[in-house]
């Protein structure tokens, strides 16, 4: 838990004691309550939140303010949840998106 900025010169001190646990891809992690899911995963050293549906390239936080949807994950079964905007709650089950089985981008290329 040392990767967070605890004593920020401007913002007030972060309360490190109020931790919750959540699972990401079936592994248990610790995070601070009401921290954004993206920040919690980053603090635990996880930068790859999903893989591109078509090409499988790893994707993670990009805009961190809810515009780009690069950080979308599945939380408790709900898809397309933006990790950067979702506050952490106790016992959240988060799974990352993976490459889809079939390519849907250019059907003519492999269907003609």
């Amino acid at each position: 838990m040392t990767r967070r900025i605890i004593h920020h010169p401007v913002l007030d001190r972060i309360d490190e004691t109020d931790t919750v646990s959540f699972t990401f891809d079936n592994k248990k992690y610790k995070a601070l309550r009401d921290e954004s899911l993206a920040a919690a995963l980053l603090a635990n050293g996880i930068r790859t939140l999903r893989h591109h549906e078509e090409f499988g390239t790893p994707r993670g936080i990009y805009c961190n303010i809810g515009h780009c949807f690069e950080c979308r994950v599945t939380v408790d079964g709900v898809q397309g949840v933006r990790a950067c905007l979702t506050p952490i709650q106790e016992g959240m089950d988060v799974t990352s998106g993976d490459k889809l089985l079939t390519s849907v981008r250019d059907w003519r290329a492999n269907n003609e």
């Binding site: 515009h67 780009c68 690069e70 979308r72």
Partner: peptide, 12 residues
């Protein structure tokens, strides 16, 4: 080219 048709709606 599909540029701008993605999930973010062309914002980037």
């Amino acid at each position: 080219t599909r540029a701008g048709m993605g999930y973010c709606g062309g914002r980037t």
